[in-house]
Design a protein around this nucleic acid. Structure first.
Lengths: 355, 355
DNA sequence: TTTGAAAAAGTGTTCGAGCACACAGCACAT
DNA sequence: ATGTGCTGTGTGCTCGAACACTTTTTCAAA
């Protein structure tokens, strides 16, 4: 029943050599005769040896200093969750010598990002987890970090043409399709459907366009009798003020508006509008389990939220770095997190950070 | 930045004693003079000592033999996933001395369950993960295992009045409400809604009734203008034969049938019927990512599936036992797994067993 | 054949916790 | 006076992998 755990010593005995030699083979340290190497390699394979990583990490007392570069949670509460996530990961991984230093920048100020990125470079961490919300400003740093051999993991925003250790986040195209599927399920009669990009610099946010494409394509490819008029708008308003004017205008133009898809976490703005104007026949789908969103989800003004799992992004980001640095595992270049569909009924299970 | 890790040796030095004495204090093994004990305790607190559990588990080579008692996956493919789950957990935890012996019974034969349960008792494992699908037959065994001090974790079926270490599974009531929410979102005009219990011994499956209650209550409590006629049926048919007769009958009786909620994993039977009869205006929601279900989900004959995460049930079941036995953690008496809403667009992320 | 340096192989220590064992000191019984 | 048993304390080995260090083997040049 019990498979015996294979130790280096077992391999050495079976190969009639010593553990030192086996060790050299295992770590490609050379200085081993070819025939012995072959023999040992065969036995390793035969016995299906897996290093006891407990002993491994006990021995190698080395510590790893990781850096996290991301926006300030106190300025945009979306970022609270990733912070919670990486802190949770740090707690789990402290045993393995993982330490994290956060570098927090102001998401509205490019130069704040640049300053912090420079600090990261100066610190020269063993690994970096970064939310590259400033796409263009980040590019030169990626080059620098690559030269310094600092592996970096991206999260939240996927960027082409840089070679991170891994990207953690969602498949934006699919995400859009999913939103479309949900709304489409709830729509019977024809009407207009709004894709709303709220307070975003679209030129720096390719992923929102990707979401929109996924959304549009779903409606185009679905073979339904009813057709829908998909319109998209960038809605910008000063922080603190209401969104009413813009929405009034859109409603005036499209009186048959029956659904709204908000491509970021600001669905609550639309929900607040709908509530105040007492409009109940417009279905609303958005992103992320922020407090104001949850409020309207509970009131069923927001029908569904898609969870981008920001906590998981922080958590898994650190874990990927640890897998690479500590456990020397192969890291897949992309780790897509699930597109969780959240409604009032299953909300609880996604709120509490469970492993 | 880096907090220095405190070792037993550090405590011993500071207390001017030896690590053996500190060790005895830490493990309440007695044989320590009171004043020394106090002094050591104070220092432990002051330095905030936390045992290095890597070294701990390296040393204590103790192995734990866990048993899993569940139905045969080759007789009902639902059980493939829990098996995959506990095997995955075993792989991760082998390092910590966890070994699993499966005890597989025929889910259609009570005596098969009883035989296997007796085998478990004879084996006297260090812990047990059990899917108590035979409620009544299982009861005496729980008593026995409690007396033998074998901690057991329930999964799949929640049972009252036994005191397991933990229950892993879903909140059935919520699960029903969620199904209702989804269907309700897709239903505009009034009509009949069927709750179908397919090939289940309802008397032994309280959780299906709970699902139905959750489902009904959602419709009752929702303040919508349209009202729906909720009917429920037990549908039984011999394995291998089709379900057509029963459904024909129901459709004849309720010509306005607009949705079906299948309370277990057999939604594909209904889907197959709908496909063959070319009925497209009935929405269908069911459970579990079985191959035949996925087929109809892709064809959009099944609109949504709720994932009961059977893989996670096996996986977390073993992990809870390990947390209890190996890591001496507190275990919550109930671990509800998320009610994942699955559709064609987000299916992939729930299929592959990711951590 | 001897020598010597490089290559190959083997030995021993370390990491931190756990635990068996050794041992000293003392009380009490024989 | 010596033995027995118990308490309090300290020492040293173990777990498996890593790696520095030592020893042995090999093989070419002298």
């Amino acid at each position: 029943m019990k498979k015996k755990i294979v130790r280096i010593k077992d391999i050495a005995e079976k190969a009639q050599t010593s553990k030192g030699t086996v060790d050299r083979v295992l770590h490609n340290r050379g200085r081993v005769a070819d025939d012995v190497r072959e023999r040992i390699l065969a036995i390793i394979k035969e016995l299906n040896y897996e290093p006891n990583f407990i002993a491994q990490s006990l021995k190698s007392q080395r510590t790893f200093n990781l850096a996290v570069l991301m926006p300030d949670p106190s300025l945009d509460s979306y970022w609270v969750a990733p912070k919670t996530g990486f802190e949770k990961a740090e707690k789990e991984l402290r045993q393995y010598g993982i330490y994290i230093t956060p570098f927090i920048f102001d998401p509205h100020e490019e130069h704040s990002f640049i300053t912090k990125a420079q600090e990261v470079t100066r610190e020269h961490p063993d690994g970096l987890l970064i939310a590259p919300v400033f796409y263009k400003q980040a590019l030169p740093f990626f080059k620098e970090w690559a030269e310094l051999n600092i592996p970096y993991v991206l999260f939240n925003t996927q960027i082409e043409h840089v070679a991170p250790l891994c990207y953690i986040g969602q498949d934006s195209y699919r995400s859009g399709s999913l939103a479309a599927k949900i709304l489409s399920f709830g729509l019977q009669s024809p009407g207009s459907v709004l894709v709303a990009h709220i307070n975003e610099d679209i030129s720096n946010s390719a992923h929102l366009i990707t979401k929109e494409n996924g959304f549009r394509d779903y409606f185009e490819n679905s073979k339904r009798d009813t057709t829908f008029n998909i319109i998209s708008k960038e809605i910008n308003y000063p922080e603190g003020e209401a969104i009413d004017d813009q929405l009034d205008q859109i409603l005036a133009e499209f009186s048959d508006l029956s659904a709204v898809y908000v491509t970021n976490s600001r669905a609550f703005e639309v929900a607040s509008y709908l509530e105040r104007k007492n409009i109940t026949n417009i279905k609303l789908v958005g992103y992320d389990l922020l407090e104001p969103n949850l409020n309207y989800l509970n009131k069923e003004i927001i029908s569904f939220l898609i969870n981008q799992n920001p906590l998981g992004q922080g958590y898994w980001g650190i874990h990927q770095l640890a897998n690479h640095l500590v456990f020397k595992k192969e890291i897949p270049p992309i780790k897509f997190l699930p597109l969780d569909i959240i409604t009032r009924e299953n909300l609880d299970y996604y709120l509490d950070p469970q492993k």
